[in-house]
Amino acid sequence: MKNVFETIFFTEILQGLGITLSHMFKKPVTYRYPFEATPIQDRFRGIQYIKTHADGRTKCVGCYLCQKVCPSECIHIETDCGPNGERLIRKYELDLSRCIYCGYCEEVCPVDAIHMGWEWNTVASDRSGYVINMKTLSQNYKDNVEGNWKNKHLKKKLVEGVQQ
């Protein structure tokens, strides 16, 4: 009997129509990306930065672990022996066009130097800017700390996450 009622009065179709109508008045979930910020979570893995000591020296000790672990072989390190037998980092290059943002370098770093940042917009009109060196990576740290984002989509509150 219930079935007959449902068939005659299309109750199920009316239910469906009700659902679509109620959805019409919901707020759309669209982010209008180039004009509007998309939310970025705290654990987002963006362009790397390398932490520095308070005096500006890099925390990186040149142990080659990140170069070893990197699955896409985008990190290239060259070190040298300093006058007092310490290790000098001659070259620390990271190829962003190869990087897959897996975060292994961050996990493996024994001195908590390299980290995944929140910047993600690497788009450029030529490839020359994709290989970044220690200087850029340290600058990235500074920018991340100060909330000095290149693309304005990142929110300020993330700065707190960097300082912890």
């Binding site: 679509t20 109508l21 959805h23 019409m24 707020k27 759309p28 979930v29 669209t30 209008r32």
Partner: peptide
């Protein structure tokens, strides 16, 4: 526009 909003999208903007 209508179908966009019914699918919780924006439609042309």
């Amino acid at each position: 526009k209508v179908i966009g909003h019914m699918q919780v999208r924006l439609g042309p903007v």
